[in-house]
Design a protein around this nucleic acid. Structure first.
Lengths: 197, 197
DNA sequence: GTCTATAATCAGATAGAC
DNA sequence: GTCTATCTGATTATAGAC
C-alpha cells in the first residue's frame, strides 16, 4: 500500500528543491508552498518559521548524504585499501548530488548563507560527516602510496568544494552522473596529469 | 602626491568587502555605506541601484582576476610548457583570492545568487577568462603527458570550484597563501596520490 | 489542515534640505 | 556630495474563519 506523503513532508521536499534552485534568500515561502500544493500561511501549521524549516532541510541533507556515502564505503569492508574506500566515497558523493537528492544539494548551495547561529548548529551536525572524510584521507596517508606533502585538511576542503560544485554546473548531456563521478575520482586521486606521465 | 580615493571608489571597495563576507542578500546598502563612511542614501549619488553597484563589483572582480592571472602566466612566454603555464595560473588564482582581493572573492561568493539577467551579462564578461582556462587545459592535453580520459570541461569546472572555495575556509595559520597555492597546484596536477605511487 | 485577510518588518529607493 | 525624512514593495509572520 502506497503511503501518500503528508503535508509536512511535502513542504520539506519543496523547500529542498526551491533552496537548491534559488538559494536561501531566493527561496520564498510562497514558492515552497505552491510547489507543495498549498499557500504560504499553511506552512506555519507545520513549522514555526522559515528558519526552522530551512534548518530541518539542512539536517536532513547532511543525514542523507552521510548515510549514503557511509553505506557505499562500508560495503567494501574495513580491510579494503584506503584508496579504494576514498574512491567509493567520491563517486557516491557525486552520484548522490547529481541523481537528484535535493536535500544534499541544498546544503551545498546555501550553507554559506545561513544565519550564524544556525550555521553553528548545522556545522556541528556536519562534523561527523566531515570527520568521516578526514578519516578516509588520513587512513590513505597512513597506508602510504600517496603524496604526503599534501595537508589533509587542505585536501579535504578542496575535495568537498569540488564535489559540491557539481550540481551548479551539471546538465544532462553526453556525460552522465556515473561518468562525472568516475572523472572526479580519477582527477582527485591522480590529478590532471594522471598515472602515466 | 597621494590621491585620496573618492566616494565612488570607497563604495565599490566596501561593496566588494561586504559581498564576500555576507553574500548577496546579506549585503545591505547600509552596511556598505557605513564601511565607506557615509549613509545608505548617499550611495545613490554614485550608483542608480544596488544591482548596478553589484554588477560593477562583479565586472571589476573578473577584470582584476583575469588580468592578474594572465600577467603571471604570460610572463613565462608562450613557449613555456603548458603544464608550467597551468601551474602558474593555479597558483596566481589562489594567491590573488587569499591575499585579499575582495572583488575577485566577491565574484566567487555571490555569482550563483545573481538575478538571472545580470548573471547573463556577468557570465558573458567571464567568458574570456573562462576560455583562457580552457585554452590552458586544452593546450596541456594537446601537448601530451596528461590523462586524456579526463573531459576538459569537467576538469575546468572542478578546478575553478576548488580554487574559488578557498576564501570561504582559509584562515591565516600555519599554511599561508603561497603554501596553499602550491598545494593546490600539486593536487590539481598530480592528485592525492601524487607522482610517486 | 488549509484558507482569507492583515499585520509587522525590513531593505531598497526617492525627495529635497543643506 | 551627504544628509534627514519618507515612501514603496516584497516577504515573513499572525489572526481567525472554515
Amino acid at each position: 500500500m502506497v503511503q501518500i506523503e503528508n503535508g509536512r513532508t511535502r513542504i520539506l521536499d519543496s523547500a529542498a528543491a526551491v533552496l537548491c534552485k534559488r538559494g536561501l534568500a531566493g527561496a520564498k515561502l510562497s514558492d515552497i508552498a505552491r510547489m507543495a500544493g498549498m499557500l504560504a500561511p499553511s506552512i506555519y501549521h507545520h513549522f514555526p518559521s522559515k528558519d526552522h524549516l530551512v534548518e530541518e532541510v539542512m539536517m536532513e541533507g547532511i543525514y542523507r548524504n552521510s548515510r549514503h556515502i557511509v553505506t557505499k564505503v562500508e560495503v567494501l569492508g574495513a580491510e579494503a585499501p584506503p584508496l579504494v574506500r576514498l574512491r567509493a566515497a567520491i563517486q557516491a558523493h557525486i552520484n548522490f548530488l547529481l541523481t537528484g537528492d535535493n536535500y544534499s544539494s541544498a546544503v551545498a548551495r546555501v550553507f554559506d548563507d545561513l544565519p550564524s547561529e544556525m550555521k553553528g548548529r548545522v556545522l556541528a551536525a556536519y562534523s561527523s560527516f566531515d570527520n568521516y572524510w578526514r578519516d578516509l584521507i588520513v587512513a590513505a596517508q597512513a597506508a602510504g602510496g600517496v603524496n604526503r606533502s599534501l595537508d589533509a585538511t587542505v585536501v579535504r576542503k578542496f575535495l568537498i568544494a569540488m564535489l559540491d560544485s557539481s550540481p551548479s554546473w551539471y546538465r544532462p548531456g553526453k556525460l552522465g552522473p556515473a561518468q562525472i563521478a568516475e572523472q572526479a575520482a580519477d582527477f582527485v586521486l591522480y590529478g590532471f596529469v594522471g598515472r602515466e606521465a
